[in-house]
Simulated assay, not measured.
Amino acid sequence: MLWTIIGILLVLWILGLIVKVGGALIHILLVAAVIIFIINLVTGRKKTG
């Protein structure tokens, strides 16, 4: 789920750079997705066993 959201935001961000659509909103959402991704990496899933 998280990877899907990040992928969609990345595609929208690239399209925004090319077509200049979306403005700052896409950049804010991309930064939020990257922050969530980093938090997910740092905390990670605890391996039991």
Rank of each mutant, 00 (worst) to 15 (best):
K47H: 14
W3F: 03
I6G: 03
I6E: 07
I38S: 00
I8Q: 03
G7H: 01
I14S: 09
I5F: 11
I28C: 02
V34N: 06
G16N: 10
M1K: 05
V11E: 02
I35D: 00
A24N: 12
K46C: 06
W13C: 11
V11P: 02
I14F: 13
I28P: 01
I35H: 01
I28K: 04
G16F: 09
L17M: 15
T48Q: 05
V11A: 12
V19N: 13
G22F: 02
G22R: 00
N40D: 13
H27M: 08
W13T: 10
R45C: 03
F37C: 01
I18F: 15
T43Q: 12
N40H: 14
V21R: 04
I8L: 08
W3H: 05
L30Y: 08
L30I: 07
V11I: 14
V42F: 11
V34P: 03
R45F: 12
I14E: 04
K46Q: 09
L12M: 09
A24R: 11
G7N: 02
V34L: 10
I39W: 07
V34A: 12
I18L: 12
L41K: 13
V31Y: 07
H27V: 14
F37P: 00
G44N: 08
L15D: 00
A24D: 08
L17A: 13
V31R: 01
G22I: 00
W3C: 02
I5L: 10
A33D: 03
I8F: 11
I28E: 01
V42P: 07
H27F: 08
L17W: 14
G44L: 07
L17K: 07
T4M: 07
T48L: 08
V31L: 14
L17N: 14
N40M: 05
A24C: 06
I6W: 03
I35K: 01
V34S: 09
G7P: 02
K47E: 12
I18R: 07
L15Y: 03
T43P: 06
I8V: 14
L25Y: 07
L10G: 15
G22T: 00
V42G: 10
W13P: 02
G44H: 10
V34R: 02
K46T: 09
T48N: 07
I36G: 05
G23S: 00
L9F: 11
H27R: 11
T48R: 07
A33P: 11
T43F: 15
V34I: 14
I14P: 04
L17C: 12
I26W: 08
V42Q: 07
L10K: 06
G49A: 13
